[in-house]
Design a binder for these strands. Structure first.
Lengths: 327, 327
DNA sequence: TTGTAGGCGTTATCAC
DNA sequence: GTGATAACGCCTACAA
């Protein structure tokens, strides 16, 4: 037989070069023999691995599973697979995993882990590989990215609280080296201004990480300060969970004494007592859109860099209530 | 230069064949040039992709992220990466994903998705590829596997309830085509016998899936039956969550009216009201051990097939209480 | 439309 | 201890 002809017949892209009759026979034979083209050999020849690297802090963060599924599903449609790397927010691990994936000749990267000033971004730029940021933003527009409009999300939360009569609205801000932390903080400031509420610096506490423990610590700090707040807009649901615990420990009740709003709408967060009022984040779509953007770049699309924002949705549940008359 | 020699020097396994001096020079040169061996070419030659396929039902099930991290971490140590495939419990999707991974020449599989009578297992056997079952069991010992001792776990739950004075202990059983569902049901039966409690068939309802909705349905059914139970041992935490909802809807309180025990100790399940009493499952270790078993098979280890059970741990929290005197 | 030939980067197997 | 050579399976000029 004629291996080259068979190859042409097997590959949908080159099939037009082959007579229908031959194609038919080749496909039939391939079916009989259970023939499967070897993607390794193909990769060696075409220098395409049909593989992309995905760096996230930690798959155990409930934020990520739906995002990863979105990525995976869209990538699979295009014949790609994702290699997932967990970095635990550690810069060194991040670098190592990135290098290992490069060594495996991934066709591109989706980074959900980059600190705003991470050396990884410079390295990625040098690599001249397609890179898409997810749930993070490069402020200088040097990389395509997909994220939720965090500022708008927090504004929705704050104006909801203001609408309930709250004036002393505190914010537990996430880490400011991370774009979500920074932009939600900005959203808080602008929302307070827009609602005509005073921007009291004592009403903001900065968490060192998006964790329950930090939420507890920050909430405790807020409770200890003079002129106590009547509502808390937390940087995310984890921090809000910390508030629940701290309020409980302080003998305060949510929402009777203090209202709490989260951000993300984590799975099962609606089952807590009280069910958490929060800002929903279209996790799955963040994944599919990031995959889409990356596929476009991999496909040689060299148009302008796209910065995609997905709209957040405000979810009103039981953790917010009108301000108590006494306050 | 001498490509073959360089190759030998670069590969730790064959380095002994090369003089120290040469090795030193090669490594130095490689360092200078930023040389990275191409794993694709290596795979083509050695027929090893250093890649393994992992099939799970759904990454969004909170059970899986920690398991996958365990797998990933152990595999990474050995220079392997995991390709994660979500099958959503669909036999056809399962087959397709499996085939695609085979086409990518994975070196082995970790299956967490196989129904007891899934055609996938036969296919896997035919493939003569190393396969490890995770959180599932092949009853005929034809595959290595890692799972929790489900029977023992449920026995711990039931004897805890019996110790609290409960005699009418119901069970919401998971799907019986899945080994976890089946074995936990068996555990319930044997525990009831061991505690000298009657095995009333009316006290068992079978869920069609491990989901909150099915938990609601089954719990409702239990509540509707005569001689109502005073405690429920649910097949897993999701089903227990369904019980919470159904009890709520029926105006009953947990644990005052009915005690509930789950299985898995899902993340955040301790934050519910009441915090769920459950059986902990060492998720991460299931992942690392499955990876270990697979690596052994891939490494040509051809000893007897290992069936590994990890011990469950009983976690007593607020959803169980002594039986009410009136009952 | 089909055949031919060379090469992708690595390593196994010789021979030296 | 090192060099030469072929081969892994596929793709793609180019020639026929």
């Amino acid at each position: 037989m004629h291996p080259a002809t068979a190859s042409r017949a097997l590959n949908p892209e080159t099939r037009i070069l082959v007579s229908e009759e031959t194609t038919r026979r080749v496909l039939a034979a391939a079916g009989e023999l259970g023939y499967r083209p070897n993607p390794v050999a193909r990769s060696l020849r075409t220098r395409r691995s049909h593989t992309v690297g995905v760096l996230i802090p930690d798959l155990n963060n409930p934020l990520f599973p739906p995002i990863v599924r979105g990525l995976d599903d869209r990538l699979a449609e295009a014949g790609y697979v994702a290699l997932i790397g967990n970095t635990d927010g550690d810069d060194e691990r991040e670098r190592v995993v990135f290098e290992q994936m490069r060594a495996r000749h991934v066709d591109g990267f989706v980074l959900a882990t980059a600190h705003l000033r991470s050396p990884l971004l410079a390295e990625a730029a040098r690599a001249e590989l397609p890179v898409v940021l997810m749930n993070r933003l490069a402020e200088d527009y040097s990389f395509p990215s997909v994220s939720v409009d965090n500022e708008r999300g927090v504004r929705m939360a704050v104006s909801h609280l203001a609408g309930l009569g709250h004036r002393k609205i505190a914010h537990i801000a996430g880490p400011q080296e991370v774009s979500t932390g920074l932009n939600r903080y900005r959203g808080y400031l602008s929302a307070m201004a827009a609602s005509g509420l005073p921007a009291d610096p004592g009403m903001v506490v900065f968490a060192r990480s998006f964790s329950v423990e930090e939420g507890v610590r920050c909430c405790r700090e807020l409770l200890g300060s003079a002129g106590r707040c009547t509502a808390i807009a937390a940087g995310n649901d984890m921090l809000a969970l910390g508030c629940y615990a701290a309020l409980d420990a302080a003998g305060l009740s949510c929402p009777a004494d203090i209202s709490v709003v989260g951000f993300n709408d984590m799975p099962f967060i609606d089952l807590l007592h009280p069910p958490l009022t929060t800002v929903r984040f279209p996790h799955y779509q963040v994944g599919t859109e990031a995959a889409q953007l990356l596929l476009e770049r991999i496909g040689g699309h060299s148009g302008p860099i796209k910065i995609l924002y997905l709209a957040p949705e405000f979810i009103s549940r039981g953790s917010t209530a009108p301000v108590a008359p006494g306050s």
